[in-house]
Design a protein around this nucleic acid. Structure first.
Lengths: 139, 139
DNA sequence: AATATAATTTGAAATGATTACAAAAATAAG
DNA sequence: CTTATTTTTGTAATCATTTCAAATTATATT
């Protein structure tokens, strides 16, 4: 997706498409790597002169509040971010620490009987060992 | 469950049933409140003389590694613990911050096609507003 | 274009949860 | 009872995130 498309997407979502916001969203959309703030910082610091980590926190919090980004809490001490807000699950590998998406349909998720509850977010996480790391262990 | 039963349960799981371990497991099993370390600490400090927070971390990490307790990562900055290791989901209320269980059958969880992956843990979290808090907002 | 106003970014310090580590205490074994 | 091993403790370190005030940048108005 090009910067222009990102800009109009942000605008449509009620977010002023400032330069750094566009760059950060662009990073999330193109990399699709469920990054931590540190990962974003170390990748974008080369590209954006004088970028601050606080800015990344600010922008991501804005994105999450505006609903254009999901905050993933898979492992206790880190938040990962995902610009794909469609229904899908996440698998985290214990060995390589990578997070990958898997498709699930909204209607396939079990609907518990929670009368009178308002449900805003669904999170379905799996943890284990990915096929790549499993093969390495075998060998 | 009584201390005696807790002891033999821990023993069976390969954990020496030392006094503090039994008390902490007993707390988890009886309260079922998905506590943070702080919650456990402030509740048990009255009961166990000279209890240290580090001990709670130690014991809980042991419990998780031995598979008798689940570590829940629902919200980014806190880990909650659950001694119910059977398949079930969790709902966290944004307002009162409480976590409640809901029953789901293992076979109702969607099984993604992740060929060659070893899946160890399933986590299904919902977030929103519980019925109690929803009512208060209405009023 | 110049100025005023508002929004954003920065960086340093504060916070909060968790871990590391070495000394002290408790437990088990000889 | 003595020694070896395991567990607990408390302090300090670490790591992610937030707070906050000052500096910068963007927007609106003249």
């Amino acid at each position: 997706m090009e910067q222009q498309q990102i800009s109009s997407y942000l605008l449509k979502s009620g977010i002023r498409p400032l330069q750094k916001r566009v760059k950060i969203m662009s990073y999330l959309v193109s990399k699709r790597n469920h990054p931590t703030v540190d990962m974003i910082y170390s990748d974008l610091i080369h590209e954006i002169n004088g970028l601050s980590k606080t800015t990344i926190y600010n922008v991501l919090n804005l994105f999450v509040q505006s609903g254009v980004t999901l905050a993933l809490n898979i492992e206790g001490n880190e938040i990962r971010y995902d610009a794909d807000t469609s229904t899908h699950g996440h698998f985290k590998c214990k060995i390589c620490t990578g997070v990958i998406d898997f498709r699930i349909k909204q209607e396939d998720l079990p609907k518990p009987a929670l009368d009178g509850f308002r449900i805003d977010e669904h999170h379905y996480y799996l943890k284990g060992v990915c096929s790549f790391c499993a093969n390495k262990i075998e060998a």
